[in-house]
């Protein structure tokens, strides 16, 4: 490619992958991303311009709205040529166009839940069940370090299919967060193997 112009500064062919961390407000998304990220989680007010689907530059009838959303993301350099990005979804359903954008090209998703407020994560579970192809797992964030509800109860309350892995996580503990990310990736391997061998 562009190596010709300056062979001494060859750009290594770096690959990036992405995992999405979803869930309702206050379930620990920013905490999880910050726990494993090598950069401080970038929690910025990102200006999102959402162009309508029917933009027609000729008649100038495009409708646009600009929304300010907090976009969380973190980065883990896994090798010199491999970077994993984590993206926390903005919590409110009105930002779902951005969820689609964040999920496009993702390898896996983790939906975080807080058992004291399960309902705040219902929309995220719905989204991954119905509106996204990205394979997902659900992770119960153990805020006080203890499991207050058996996982079976959580699964029932969420109406979660048996095929969706349900794990626990301590969003402040690095090893635990990495385990939940691994669970999500292993789930994708499993789900996509089924497709490949059908």
């Amino acid at each position: 490619m562009a190596f010709v112009s300056s062979p001494d500064r060859a750009v290594p062919n770096v690959t990036s992958a992405k995992i999405v961390v979803a869930g309702g407000f206050g379930v620990g998304k920013t905490t999880l991303v910050g726990t494993v990220s090598e950069i401080p989680p970038v929690n910025t007010e990102a200006w999102m311009t959402q162009a309508s689907k029917t933009v027609d530059p000729l008649n100038g009838s495009e409708a646009k709205t600009t929304t300010t959303v907090a976009m969380d993301f973190g980065r883990i350099s896994l090798a010199r040529d491999l970077i994993l990005y984590l993206f926390g979804t903005p919590g409110q359903p009105r930002f779902w166009p951005m969820w689609d954008d964040l999920c496009r090209g993702a390898s896996a998703a983790v939906v975080l839940v807080d058992t004291r407020r399960l309902d705040v994560s219902f929309p995220a579970v719905n989204y991954f069940e119905n509106d996204s192809d990205v394979p997902f797992v659900v992770a119960v964030n153990l805020f006080d370090g203890r499991q207050t509800h058996p996982l079976d109860q959580v699964r029932d309350a969420l109406g979660l299919a048996d095929t969706v892995p349900l794990v626990t996580v301590d969003a402040r503990d690095r090893r635990s967060c990495v385990q939940s990310l691994l669970a999500s990736l292993n789930n994708t391997v499993e789900k996509t193997s089924q497709v490949a061998t059908r």
Partner: peptide, 16 residues
């Protein structure tokens, strides 16, 4: 993003 070679690299990298 579901290519198993990519997933394996990410999984191995995360384990390390």
């Amino acid at each position: 993003p579901y290519d198993h070679r990519l997933l394996k690299r990410v999984i191995d990298g995360l384990r390390e």
